[in-house]
Design a protein around this nucleic acid. Structure first.
Lengths: 208, 208
DNA sequence: GCCGGCATCTCCCAAATGGGAGATAAGGAC
DNA sequence: GTCCTTATCTCCCATTTGGGAGATGCCGGC
């Protein structure tokens, strides 16, 4: 981490967003953009190459989820400073980003000032969360974690599979699937399987 | 429409995208950005004020859907040239954008060159669709239109409502809801209500 | 060792779901 | 006028769903 200027790596598959970020940061004398990655693979490679002070990472990438990329980078470089940027501002999402080792979270609608504030704050070792998200994070009673099996079942439910079909596909009894369903319905507090799917999508547990 | 330069209105709720577009266009001598709107309401007002040659419109806006904003502008100004920009590149989406009167469609991942090409093409009276989308549009056998009522029912299904609850909410008999469901299931070729919801989301018919 | 979470399985049973078939009425398109 | 779509309704009925209340074996944490 050089004292003279903060090096920044931008990771986003949308050209327009990369351009917006670059244009916002290039006006600042203490920030220097060292690279722009279009997907998770490129992000991992570029991180190794440039070792940026701060990485701005989009949540949704064509290959790997941004949270997963963050997890991988942090596991090999615990001192990495990553700010996740996402359209999706659910408490779920933020929670998982933080858990993965991100140091900041920015909604895509953030103004110039907040963006710079976040980068500088994170570069100097601080955390950054937008105020309205901090408060929502506090009352995150809605945070639930589904087991791998439950998530797998839910994914098949989202595909329109019936319990019996899911049972065949996973090679277990139908009763087992019903039990998993029963558990995940109660975890998500969903009245039925359809709402369980839409809730899981809303909370970022499931992707279409 | 001035012959000297093309005036452009940018509509997007994400600051970073607006910045990206502005920075991409400001380097071009024949393009002039006359305004940036953050939502549908602002877009309508700004369009009236500036009468831009070309409007770049995001598909997802906080208040009204971009396609709907397009429809409204075009209905009062049939000569409006609007390019829809979206993350979502389903044939469905493009089809509805075109139907609403848009003259072009751009994925958010589009590079600089395509963006400028689209603006200039549309400003001079042409249409613009990315090549890979044109071909997909041709084989859009999957395009189905749900009636207003069917969509309303499906929205409530996505919320986890049972047929009986939906019937009460809409003030009709439960049998009626079942018929609507039956019709929309067959239109979407969905095996059950859950898959109907996820399919509708995938195809951009329904938003969470 | 004990306990909690997970995955698996077993009953029972009321309620919801979805398919089939058909009918009526209103409104628009050709 | 006829045809089509939409919305409304009515039967019937097999299958599915989801809740309740268990039990077993396994693994990891304390």
């Amino acid at each position: 981490m050089r004292s003279t200027s903060i090096s920044v790596l931008v990771v986003d598959d949308h050209f327009m967003i990369r351009l917006g970020l670059v244009s916002a940061l290039s006006q600042e004398s203490d920030l220097e953009i060292v690279g722009g990655a279009r997907n998770g693979q490129e992000a991992l490679e570029m991180f190794e190459t440039f070792r940026p002070d701060v990485t701005l990472m989009d949540g949704i990438l064509p290959d790997i989820h941004g949270v997963e990329v963050t997890r991988r980078i942090v596991s090999s470089h615990p001192d990495a400073r990553i700010i996740l940027i996402s359209i999706n501002e659910t408490a779920e999402d933020v929670h998982r980003a933080m858990e993965a080792g991100a140091w900041g979270y920015l909604p895509k609608s953030s103004e110039h000032r907040l963006l710079l504030e976040a980068i500088r704050s994170v570069a100097s070792g601080g955390r950054y969360l937008p105020p309205e998200i901090q408060s929502r994070l506090a009352e995150r009673s809605l945070y639930v974690s589904l087991s791998d099996r439950e998530l797998e079942v839910l994914r098949l439910v989202a595909k329109g599979k019936a319990n019996k079909e899911i049972a065949e596909e996973l090679g277990v009894g139908e009763g087992t699937i019903k039990t998993h369903l029963k558990h995940l319905l109660s975890k998500l507090e969903a009245p039925d399987r359809t709402r369980a799917v839409t809730l899981a999508i809303e909370r970022g547990l499931l992707r279409l």
